[in-house]
Computed example of a mutant assay.
Amino acid sequence: MESNSVGLVTPRTFTFGSVEEPMVLESGRTLGPVDIVYETYGEPNADRSNAILICHALSGDHHAAGHHDPHDRRSGWWDNMIGPGKGFDTNRYWVICSNIIGGCKGSTGPVSIHPATGEPYRLAFPVVTIGDMVEAQKRLLDHLQVRRLYSMAGGSMGGFQVLEWALRYPERVRSAICIASAARLSAQAIAFNTVGRSAITRDPEWHAGGYEGRGPEQGLATARMVGHITYLSEILLDAKFGRRLQSADRFCYNFTNEFAIESYLNYKGSAFTERFDANSYLYITKAMDYFDISRSYGPLKQAFARVAARCLFVSYSSDWLFPTSQTKEMVRAMLCNSKPVSFIEVDSPYGHDAFLVEEEKLTRIVSGFLEGVAR
Protein backbone atom coordinates (compact mmCIF):
# COMPACT_ATOMS: atom_id res chain seq x y z
CA MET A 1 0.00 0.00 0.00
CA GLU A 2 1.35 3.46 -0.93
CA SER A 3 2.86 5.61 1.82
CA ASN A 4 0.49 8.45 0.95
CA SER A 5 -2.61 6.26 0.93
CA VAL A 6 -5.31 6.75 3.55
CA GLY A 7 -4.88 3.02 4.16
CA LEU A 8 -7.66 0.73 5.33
CA VAL A 9 -11.08 2.34 5.65
CA THR A 10 -14.40 1.05 6.97
CA PRO A 11 -17.75 2.27 5.60
CA ARG A 12 -20.26 3.45 8.18
CA THR A 13 -24.02 3.84 8.01
CA PHE A 14 -26.12 6.72 9.31
CA THR A 15 -29.88 6.21 9.52
CA PHE A 16 -32.44 8.96 9.85
CA GLY A 17 -36.19 9.30 9.57
CA SER A 18 -38.84 6.63 10.04
CA VAL A 19 -42.14 5.48 8.63
CA GLU A 20 -43.86 7.82 11.10
CA GLU A 21 -41.48 10.76 10.48
CA PRO A 22 -40.15 10.30 6.95
CA MET A 23 -38.03 12.47 4.71
CA VAL A 24 -40.31 14.47 2.39
CA LEU A 25 -38.97 14.47 -1.17
CA GLU A 26 -39.28 17.19 -3.79
CA SER A 27 -41.94 15.10 -5.53
CA GLY A 28 -44.09 15.22 -2.40
CA ARG A 29 -43.57 11.53 -1.73
CA THR A 30 -41.90 10.33 1.44
CA LEU A 31 -39.03 8.03 2.35
CA GLY A 32 -38.10 6.60 5.70
CA PRO A 33 -36.13 5.25 7.34
CA VAL A 34 -33.19 6.38 5.19
CA ASP A 35 -29.71 4.84 5.31
CA ILE A 36 -26.66 6.83 4.20
CA VAL A 37 -23.40 4.88 3.79
CA TYR A 38 -20.27 6.99 4.07
CA GLU A 39 -16.51 6.96 4.62
CA THR A 40 -14.22 9.55 6.18
CA TYR A 41 -10.50 10.14 5.66
CA GLY A 42 -8.21 12.18 7.91
CA GLU A 43 -9.29 13.64 11.24
CA PRO A 44 -11.61 16.49 12.20
CA ASN A 45 -10.14 19.48 14.00
CA ALA A 46 -11.64 20.75 17.25
CA ASP A 47 -14.56 22.64 15.69
CA ARG A 48 -14.82 20.42 12.61
CA SER A 49 -14.19 23.39 10.34
CA ASN A 50 -11.73 21.41 8.20
CA ALA A 51 -14.41 19.14 6.69
CA ILE A 52 -14.52 18.63 2.92
CA LEU A 53 -17.45 16.80 1.31
CA ILE A 54 -16.75 14.78 -1.84
CA CYS A 55 -19.73 14.13 -4.13
CA HIS A 56 -19.60 11.22 -6.55
CA ALA A 57 -20.79 10.88 -10.14
CA LEU A 58 -23.35 8.47 -11.61
CA SER A 59 -21.45 5.21 -11.22
CA GLY A 60 -19.40 6.22 -8.17
CA ASP A 61 -20.06 5.60 -4.50
CA HIS A 62 -18.89 6.39 -0.98
CA HIS A 63 -15.58 4.52 -1.41
CA ALA A 64 -13.48 7.41 -2.69
CA ALA A 65 -10.06 6.49 -1.26
CA GLY A 66 -8.07 3.74 0.43
CA HIS A 67 -8.84 0.03 0.64
CA HIS A 68 -11.43 -2.04 2.46
CA ASP A 69 -9.04 -4.88 3.26
CA PRO A 70 -5.32 -5.61 2.80
CA HIS A 71 -6.01 -7.85 -0.21
CA ASP A 72 -8.32 -5.37 -1.95
CA ARG A 73 -6.77 -4.75 -5.38
CA ARG A 74 -9.03 -1.80 -6.18
CA SER A 75 -8.65 1.45 -4.30
CA GLY A 76 -11.32 4.13 -3.99
CA TRP A 77 -12.43 5.86 -7.18
CA TRP A 78 -10.55 9.13 -6.37
CA ASP A 79 -7.65 7.59 -4.45
CA ASN A 80 -5.04 9.68 -6.28
CA MET A 81 -6.77 12.86 -5.09
CA ILE A 82 -7.46 12.00 -1.42
CA GLY A 83 -4.69 11.23 1.07
CA PRO A 84 -1.63 12.65 2.82
CA GLY A 85 -0.05 15.32 0.62
CA LYS A 86 -2.59 14.84 -2.19
CA GLY A 87 -5.06 17.37 -3.60
CA PHE A 88 -7.42 16.80 -0.69
CA ASP A 89 -4.66 16.51 1.90
CA THR A 90 -5.82 14.33 4.79
CA ASN A 91 -3.00 15.74 6.94
CA ARG A 92 -5.00 18.98 6.91
CA TYR A 93 -8.59 18.14 5.99
CA TRP A 94 -11.28 15.78 7.19
CA VAL A 95 -12.70 14.35 3.96
CA ILE A 96 -16.19 12.83 3.84
CA CYS A 97 -17.81 10.93 0.97
CA SER A 98 -21.30 9.41 1.08
CA ASN A 99 -23.28 7.23 -1.30
CA ILE A 100 -26.31 9.04 -2.74
CA ILE A 101 -29.86 7.93 -2.03
CA GLY A 102 -31.23 6.07 -5.03
CA GLY A 103 -27.90 4.28 -5.48
CA CYS A 104 -27.11 0.61 -5.00
CA LYS A 105 -24.06 0.68 -2.74
CA GLY A 106 -25.71 0.70 0.66
CA SER A 107 -27.64 3.95 0.86
CA THR A 108 -31.41 3.61 0.57
CA GLY A 109 -32.41 2.92 -3.03
CA PRO A 110 -34.52 0.58 -5.17
CA VAL A 111 -32.57 -2.48 -3.96
CA SER A 112 -33.27 -1.63 -0.30
CA ILE A 113 -36.01 -3.32 1.68
CA HIS A 114 -39.35 -1.53 1.72
CA PRO A 115 -40.45 -1.36 5.40
CA ALA A 116 -44.09 -1.87 4.46
CA THR A 117 -43.58 -5.06 2.43
CA GLY A 118 -40.34 -6.64 3.59
CA GLU A 119 -39.35 -6.89 -0.10
CA PRO A 120 -37.00 -4.71 -2.16
CA TYR A 121 -38.53 -1.37 -3.18
CA ARG A 122 -37.79 -1.89 -6.87
CA LEU A 123 -40.06 0.58 -8.75
CA ALA A 124 -42.01 1.35 -5.57
CA PHE A 125 -39.00 3.47 -4.67
CA PRO A 126 -39.91 7.14 -5.21
CA VAL A 127 -38.14 9.16 -7.87
CA VAL A 128 -35.47 11.30 -6.21
CA THR A 129 -33.77 14.50 -7.33
CA ILE A 130 -30.32 16.02 -6.89
CA GLY A 131 -31.96 18.23 -4.25
CA ASP A 132 -33.13 15.14 -2.37
CA MET A 133 -29.61 13.71 -2.47
CA VAL A 134 -28.26 16.97 -1.03
CA GLU A 135 -30.93 17.01 1.68
CA ALA A 136 -29.86 13.52 2.76
CA GLN A 137 -26.21 14.64 2.80
CA LYS A 138 -27.18 17.60 5.00
CA ARG A 139 -28.74 15.20 7.52
CA LEU A 140 -25.46 13.28 7.54
CA LEU A 141 -23.38 16.43 8.11
CA ASP A 142 -25.72 17.48 10.93
CA HIS A 143 -25.11 14.05 12.47
CA LEU A 144 -21.34 14.52 12.06
CA GLN A 145 -21.64 17.97 13.70
CA VAL A 146 -20.27 19.80 10.65
CA ARG A 147 -21.82 23.27 10.79
CA ARG A 148 -19.96 24.67 7.77
CA LEU A 149 -17.91 22.86 5.15
CA TYR A 150 -14.40 24.13 4.49
CA SER A 151 -14.99 22.97 0.93
CA MET A 152 -16.80 20.47 -1.22
CA ALA A 153 -16.00 19.01 -4.60
CA GLY A 154 -17.51 16.85 -7.29
CA GLY A 155 -17.31 16.10 -10.98
CA SER A 156 -20.14 15.49 -13.45
CA MET A 157 -23.25 14.59 -11.38
CA GLY A 158 -21.07 15.28 -8.33
CA GLY A 159 -20.82 18.83 -9.67
CA PHE A 160 -24.63 19.03 -9.71
CA GLN A 161 -24.62 18.24 -5.99
CA VAL A 162 -21.94 20.87 -5.33
CA LEU A 163 -24.02 23.50 -7.13
CA GLU A 164 -27.21 22.48 -5.33
CA TRP A 165 -25.44 22.73 -1.97
CA ALA A 166 -24.07 26.20 -2.77
CA LEU A 167 -27.54 27.42 -3.77
CA ARG A 168 -29.70 25.60 -1.20
CA TYR A 169 -27.47 26.01 1.85
CA PRO A 170 -25.12 28.92 1.05
CA GLU A 171 -24.30 29.52 4.71
CA ARG A 172 -23.04 25.94 5.07
CA VAL A 173 -20.42 26.07 2.27
CA ARG A 174 -17.22 28.11 2.60
CA SER A 175 -15.83 27.05 -0.80
CA ALA A 176 -16.95 24.85 -3.68
CA ILE A 177 -15.18 23.02 -6.50
CA CYS A 178 -17.36 22.16 -9.49
CA ILE A 179 -15.61 19.99 -12.09
CA ALA A 180 -16.77 19.02 -15.60
CA SER A 181 -20.36 19.91 -14.84
CA ALA A 182 -23.11 22.36 -15.78
CA ALA A 183 -26.17 24.26 -14.59
CA ARG A 184 -28.39 21.71 -16.32
CA LEU A 185 -28.20 18.71 -18.63
CA SER A 186 -28.35 19.56 -22.31
CA ALA A 187 -31.00 18.02 -24.56
CA GLN A 188 -28.22 15.90 -26.09
CA ALA A 189 -27.22 14.52 -22.67
CA ILE A 190 -30.86 13.79 -21.79
CA ALA A 191 -31.14 11.98 -25.12
CA PHE A 192 -28.21 9.69 -24.27
CA ASN A 193 -29.75 8.96 -20.85
CA THR A 194 -33.05 8.18 -22.55
CA VAL A 195 -31.40 5.63 -24.84
CA GLY A 196 -29.71 4.01 -21.84
CA ARG A 197 -32.96 3.74 -19.88
CA SER A 198 -34.75 2.41 -22.93
CA ALA A 199 -32.13 -0.34 -23.34
CA ILE A 200 -32.84 -1.43 -19.75
CA THR A 201 -36.65 -1.23 -19.83
CA ARG A 202 -36.84 -3.06 -23.19
CA ASP A 203 -34.72 -5.93 -21.93
CA PRO A 204 -37.13 -8.89 -21.46
CA GLU A 205 -35.39 -9.65 -18.14
CA TRP A 206 -36.35 -6.28 -16.66
CA HIS A 207 -39.89 -7.47 -15.80
CA ALA A 208 -41.15 -3.93 -15.17
CA GLY A 209 -38.46 -3.49 -12.55
CA GLY A 210 -39.42 -6.64 -10.67
CA TYR A 211 -36.47 -8.78 -11.72
CA GLU A 212 -34.68 -11.13 -9.34
CA GLY A 213 -30.91 -11.57 -9.25
CA ARG A 214 -28.91 -10.15 -12.14
CA GLY A 215 -31.94 -8.98 -14.10
CA PRO A 216 -31.60 -7.07 -17.39
CA GLU A 217 -27.86 -7.51 -17.83
CA GLN A 218 -27.91 -6.95 -21.58
CA GLY A 219 -29.90 -3.75 -21.24
CA LEU A 220 -27.71 -2.40 -18.46
CA ALA A 221 -24.55 -3.29 -20.38
CA THR A 222 -25.85 -1.45 -23.45
CA ALA A 223 -26.76 1.57 -21.31
CA ARG A 224 -23.24 1.64 -19.93
CA MET A 225 -21.72 1.31 -23.40
CA VAL A 226 -23.73 4.31 -24.62
CA GLY A 227 -22.85 6.31 -21.52
CA HIS A 228 -19.18 5.41 -21.70
CA ILE A 229 -18.91 6.77 -25.24
CA THR A 230 -20.01 10.18 -23.92
CA TYR A 231 -17.23 10.13 -21.30
CA LEU A 232 -14.47 9.81 -23.92
CA SER A 233 -13.29 12.11 -26.69
CA GLU A 234 -12.96 11.50 -30.42
CA ILE A 235 -9.25 12.30 -30.11
CA LEU A 236 -8.76 9.63 -27.44
CA LEU A 237 -10.79 6.97 -29.25
CA ASP A 238 -8.86 7.53 -32.47
CA ALA A 239 -5.50 7.46 -30.69
CA LYS A 240 -6.30 4.41 -28.54
CA PHE A 241 -8.28 2.28 -30.98
CA GLY A 242 -8.61 3.89 -34.39
CA ARG A 243 -9.98 1.31 -36.84
CA ARG A 244 -7.74 -1.44 -35.49
CA LEU A 245 -9.14 -4.96 -35.68
CA GLN A 246 -9.10 -6.93 -32.47
CA SER A 247 -7.54 -10.21 -33.49
CA ALA A 248 -7.29 -10.45 -37.26
CA ASP A 249 -5.80 -8.61 -40.20
CA ARG A 250 -8.86 -8.93 -42.42
CA PHE A 251 -12.65 -8.68 -42.10
CA CYS A 252 -14.69 -11.70 -41.03
CA TYR A 253 -17.80 -10.60 -42.94
CA ASN A 254 -20.14 -11.40 -40.05
CA PHE A 255 -21.54 -9.61 -36.98
CA THR A 256 -18.98 -10.57 -34.38
CA ASN A 257 -16.99 -7.89 -32.56
CA GLU A 258 -14.11 -7.31 -34.97
CA PHE A 259 -12.95 -3.80 -34.13
CA ALA A 260 -10.93 -3.12 -30.98
CA ILE A 261 -13.36 -0.39 -29.93
CA GLU A 262 -16.23 -2.92 -30.08
CA SER A 263 -14.45 -5.31 -27.75
CA TYR A 264 -13.54 -2.47 -25.38
CA LEU A 265 -17.12 -1.23 -25.09
CA ASN A 266 -18.45 -4.75 -24.61
CA TYR A 267 -15.94 -5.29 -21.81
CA LYS A 268 -16.94 -2.02 -20.13
CA GLY A 269 -20.63 -2.88 -20.40
CA SER A 270 -20.23 -6.40 -19.02
CA ALA A 271 -18.01 -5.26 -16.15
CA PHE A 272 -20.57 -2.64 -15.14
CA THR A 273 -23.30 -5.24 -14.69
CA GLU A 274 -21.13 -6.94 -12.06
CA ARG A 275 -21.26 -3.92 -9.76
CA PHE A 276 -24.38 -1.89 -10.52
CA ASP A 277 -28.15 -2.28 -10.33
CA ALA A 278 -30.29 -1.59 -13.39
CA ASN A 279 -33.12 0.11 -11.50
CA SER A 280 -30.64 2.39 -9.74
CA TYR A 281 -29.33 3.40 -13.17
CA LEU A 282 -32.88 4.45 -14.12
CA TYR A 283 -33.37 6.51 -10.96
CA ILE A 284 -30.00 8.25 -11.01
CA THR A 285 -30.10 9.23 -14.68
CA LYS A 286 -33.64 10.57 -14.16
CA ALA A 287 -32.39 12.71 -11.27
CA MET A 288 -29.68 14.07 -13.57
CA ASP A 289 -32.25 14.88 -16.26
CA TYR A 290 -34.38 16.83 -13.77
CA PHE A 291 -31.51 18.98 -12.51
CA ASP A 292 -31.89 22.55 -13.79
CA ILE A 293 -30.75 25.53 -11.73
CA SER A 294 -32.89 28.01 -13.67
CA ARG A 295 -36.04 25.98 -13.12
CA SER A 296 -35.41 25.80 -9.37
CA TYR A 297 -33.79 29.17 -8.63
CA GLY A 298 -34.50 31.44 -11.59
CA PRO A 299 -32.14 32.73 -14.32
CA LEU A 300 -28.48 32.00 -13.61
CA LYS A 301 -27.59 35.62 -12.78
CA GLN A 302 -30.41 35.70 -10.23
CA ALA A 303 -29.68 32.20 -8.94
CA PHE A 304 -25.96 32.72 -8.36
CA ALA A 305 -26.65 35.84 -6.29
CA ARG A 306 -27.47 33.34 -3.52
CA VAL A 307 -24.00 31.79 -3.50
CA ALA A 308 -21.79 32.70 -0.54
CA ALA A 309 -18.97 30.22 -1.28
CA ARG A 310 -15.71 30.98 -3.02
CA CYS A 311 -16.03 28.83 -6.17
CA LEU A 312 -13.65 27.04 -8.50
CA PHE A 313 -14.93 25.82 -11.86
CA VAL A 314 -12.87 23.35 -13.89
CA SER A 315 -13.66 22.25 -17.44
CA TYR A 316 -11.81 20.13 -20.00
CA SER A 317 -11.09 21.10 -23.59
CA SER A 318 -12.25 17.80 -25.12
CA ASP A 319 -15.32 17.25 -22.91
CA TRP A 320 -18.32 17.31 -25.23
CA LEU A 321 -20.78 16.00 -22.64
CA PHE A 322 -20.24 19.06 -20.39
CA PRO A 323 -18.40 21.48 -22.69
CA THR A 324 -16.51 24.52 -21.46
CA SER A 325 -19.22 26.83 -22.82
CA GLN A 326 -21.60 25.50 -20.15
CA THR A 327 -19.04 26.15 -17.41
CA LYS A 328 -18.44 29.70 -18.65
CA GLU A 329 -22.18 30.33 -18.33
CA MET A 330 -21.91 29.78 -14.58
CA VAL A 331 -18.67 31.73 -14.25
CA ARG A 332 -20.28 34.74 -15.95
CA ALA A 333 -23.24 34.52 -13.57
CA MET A 334 -20.85 34.56 -10.60
CA LEU A 335 -18.92 37.54 -12.01
CA CYS A 336 -22.14 39.46 -12.66
CA ASN A 337 -22.82 39.17 -8.93
CA SER A 338 -19.23 40.11 -7.98
CA LYS A 339 -18.78 36.69 -6.37
CA PRO A 340 -15.28 35.28 -5.79
CA VAL A 341 -14.75 32.75 -8.57
CA SER A 342 -11.84 30.98 -10.26
CA PHE A 343 -12.03 29.19 -13.58
CA ILE A 344 -9.66 27.02 -15.57
CA GLU A 345 -10.08 25.02 -18.75
CA VAL A 346 -7.63 22.13 -18.74
CA ASP A 347 -6.24 21.14 -22.12
CA SER A 348 -6.79 17.39 -22.22
CA PRO A 349 -7.49 14.66 -24.79
CA TYR A 350 -9.38 12.50 -22.27
CA GLY A 351 -12.85 13.98 -22.63
CA HIS A 352 -15.32 14.03 -19.74
CA ASP A 353 -13.41 11.34 -17.83
CA ALA A 354 -10.34 13.58 -17.58
CA PHE A 355 -11.10 14.52 -13.96
CA LEU A 356 -10.75 10.83 -13.04
CA VAL A 357 -7.68 10.26 -15.23
CA GLU A 358 -5.47 13.36 -15.13
CA GLU A 359 -5.36 13.69 -11.38
CA GLU A 360 -1.86 15.19 -11.32
CA LYS A 361 -3.08 18.30 -13.12
CA LEU A 362 -6.20 18.48 -10.96
CA THR A 363 -4.12 18.11 -7.79
CA ARG A 364 -2.15 21.27 -8.59
CA ILE A 365 -5.35 23.18 -9.33
CA VAL A 366 -7.24 22.00 -6.24
CA SER A 367 -4.30 22.41 -3.86
CA GLY A 368 -3.76 25.99 -4.98
CA PHE A 369 -7.45 26.82 -4.63
CA LEU A 370 -7.74 25.33 -1.13
CA GLU A 371 -4.65 27.26 -0.06
CA GLY A 372 -6.32 30.41 -1.33
CA VAL A 373 -9.45 29.67 0.69
CA ALA A 374 -7.32 29.48 3.83
CA ARG A 375 -5.77 32.87 3.05
Results as ranks from 00 to 15, higher is better:
residue 251 F to K: 06
residue 227 G to T: 09
residue 276 F to R: 05
residue 276 F to G: 09
residue 241 F to A: 01
residue 241 F to N: 00
residue 259 F to K: 10
residue 267 Y to F: 13
residue 240 K to T: 09
residue 277 D to N: 12
residue 236 L to S: 15
residue 261 I to H: 04
residue 265 L to T: 00
residue 273 T to F: 12
residue 277 D to H: 08
residue 225 M to Q: 15
residue 256 T to W: 02
residue 275 R to T: 10
residue 255 F to H: 15
residue 261 I to F: 00
residue 247 S to W: 02
residue 238 D to A: 09
residue 249 D to N: 14
residue 250 R to E: 15
residue 225 M to D: 06
residue 227 G to W: 06
residue 270 S to N: 05
residue 257 N to T: 12
residue 246 Q to L: 09
residue 227 G to M: 08
residue 246 Q to A: 13
residue 274 E to H: 14
residue 226 V to W: 04
residue 228 H to T: 04
residue 266 N to P: 02
residue 224 R to T: 05
residue 237 L to R: 14
residue 257 N to E: 13
residue 272 F to L: 07
residue 242 G to S: 09
residue 221 A to I: 09
residue 279 N to R: 09
residue 271 A to D: 11
residue 240 K to G: 01
residue 263 S to M: 10
residue 235 I to H: 06
residue 233 S to N: 02
residue 225 M to T: 10
residue 244 R to S: 07
residue 271 A to E: 14
residue 278 A to G: 01
residue 250 R to N: 14
residue 236 L to Q: 15
residue 244 R to L: 06
residue 247 S to L: 00
residue 242 G to T: 06
residue 248 A to W: 01
residue 255 F to C: 11
residue 259 F to W: 12
residue 234 E to P: 02
residue 220 L to F: 08
residue 227 G to A: 10
residue 220 L to I: 09
residue 273 T to N: 10
residue 247 S to D: 11
residue 234 E to Y: 11
residue 254 N to K: 01
residue 222 T to V: 15
residue 253 Y to H: 14
residue 237 L to E: 15
residue 265 L to N: 00
residue 254 N to M: 01
residue 220 L to D: 05
residue 227 G to K: 05
residue 249 D to K: 11
residue 233 S to Q: 03
residue 220 L to R: 06
residue 258 E to P: 02
residue 262 E to M: 12
residue 273 T to W: 12
residue 266 N to A: 01
residue 278 A to C: 01
residue 271 A to I: 10
residue 268 K to V: 01
residue 236 L to R: 11
residue 264 Y to T: 00
residue 237 L to W: 02
residue 235 I to A: 12
residue 244 R to H: 06
residue 263 S to F: 00
residue 260 A to M: 12
residue 234 E to V: 13
residue 252 C to Y: 11
residue 247 S to I: 00
residue 262 E to A: 13
residue 246 Q to R: 09
residue 241 F to R: 03
residue 239 A to P: 06
residue 263 S to E: 14
residue 274 E to I: 08
residue 273 T to S: 14
residue 269 G to D: 02
residue 272 F to Q: 02
residue 260 A to L: 14
residue 254 N to W: 07
residue 271 A to N: 13
residue 230 T to Q: 14
residue 279 N to A: 10
residue 240 K to I: 01
residue 242 G to K: 07
residue 230 T to A: 13
residue 241 F to E: 01
residue 221 A to K: 08
residue 232 L to N: 04
residue 230 T to G: 10
residue 233 S to D: 04
residue 264 Y to C: 03
residue 258 E to K: 01
residue 257 N to F: 12
residue 269 G to K: 02
residue 239 A to R: 15
residue 236 L to C: 09
residue 223 A to N: 07
residue 279 N to V: 10
residue 250 R to W: 15
residue 236 L to N: 10
residue 237 L to V: 15
residue 279 N to S: 09
residue 235 I to Y: 04
residue 270 S to L: 04
residue 229 I to R: 03
residue 260 A to H: 07
residue 267 Y to I: 05
residue 258 E to V: 05
residue 223 A to E: 08
residue 267 Y to C: 06
residue 278 A to W: 03
residue 256 T to E: 12
residue 258 E to G: 04
residue 273 T to E: 13
residue 271 A to Y: 07
residue 232 L to R: 07
residue 235 I to L: 10
